[in-house]
């Protein structure tokens, strides 16, 4: 564990807590893409298959349970909570996310570290996480007003994988085995997808104006 990875995990934890806070306290999921939440639940379900077979550390297991629990409960809130689901804008959240899942699964079947079920599922989760934010970014561009909590959620979610890149660089120079190239290429692609969001997020923060993405 290094400071970059810890910072990344804490940023990731903060992003899910911000989203849970928004949905649980103000009972609203306005501006939140259910499609992205469903993709993230699938990412964690396919990445943490080893949660029962490979014990790494208490921290690792607890964080996996938090990410699994929070992502599935957020999907439940938006789909089934009698108040929250009314604020879900399904007419705007129209990204066909199965068009993301299928290519990721095909790619994982061809490009992976070794051809086992767990490994292909883990690789699929890396590819899927790289593109999981797309429905959310598309929704943000459609809904003109982005409330602070949603903006902060997306910012933290993008920042966490950016911090992981520093973690992979650090591990490359300090450990005998380095993190597999599939992991960090997917992580770099994922972070690059947030590039324009980061730009507009910092612009709005610097000029102290409401965050608005260009149409």
């Amino acid at each position: 564990m290094n400071i970059f990875r810890l910072a990344g995990d804490m940023t990731h934890l903060a992003s899910v807590l911000v989203l849970l806070l928004k949905i649980h306290t103000i009972k609203s999921c306005a501006g939140v893409s259910l499609k992205t939440q469903e993709l993230y639940a699938l990412v964690f379900a396919t990445r943490y298959l080893d949660i029962v077979t490979d014990f790494i550390s208490v921290y690792n297991t607890v964080m996996k349970l938090i990410f699994l629990g929070s992502s599935f409960s957020i999907v439940w809130y938006i789909r089934h909570h009698r108040v929250v689901r009314r604020s879900y804008d399904k007419d705007q959240d129209t990204f066909r996310h199965y068009l993301l899942m299928i290519p990721c699964m095909l790619l994982a079947l061809f490009v992976h570290e070794k051809f086992t079920f767990k490994e292909v599922m883990w690789t699929f989760s890396l590819y899927l996480e790289a593109v999981a934010i797309l429905p959310q970014l598309v929704l943000l561009q459609r809904t003109r007003n982005i409330d602070n909590l949603t903006g902060q959620y997306v910012f933290l979610l993008g920042a966490y994988r950016g911090l992981y890149i520093f973690n992979w660089i650090y591990r490359y120079f300090t450990e005998p085995h380095f993190v597999h190239w599939i992991t960090w290429i997917a992580g770099v692609v994922q972070t690059l997808l947030y590039a324009d969001f980061f730009y507009y997020y910092f612009e709005s923060w610097k000029n102290n104006v409401r965050l608005q993405l260009p149409a």
Binding site: K64, F67, Y164, R171, V179, H180, T183
Partner: peptide, 10 residues
């Protein structure tokens, strides 16, 4: 057991 690289991460 030496974890294969990256699997000890979240």
């Amino acid at each position: 057991m030496e974890h294969s690289s990256g699997k000890d991460e979240l």
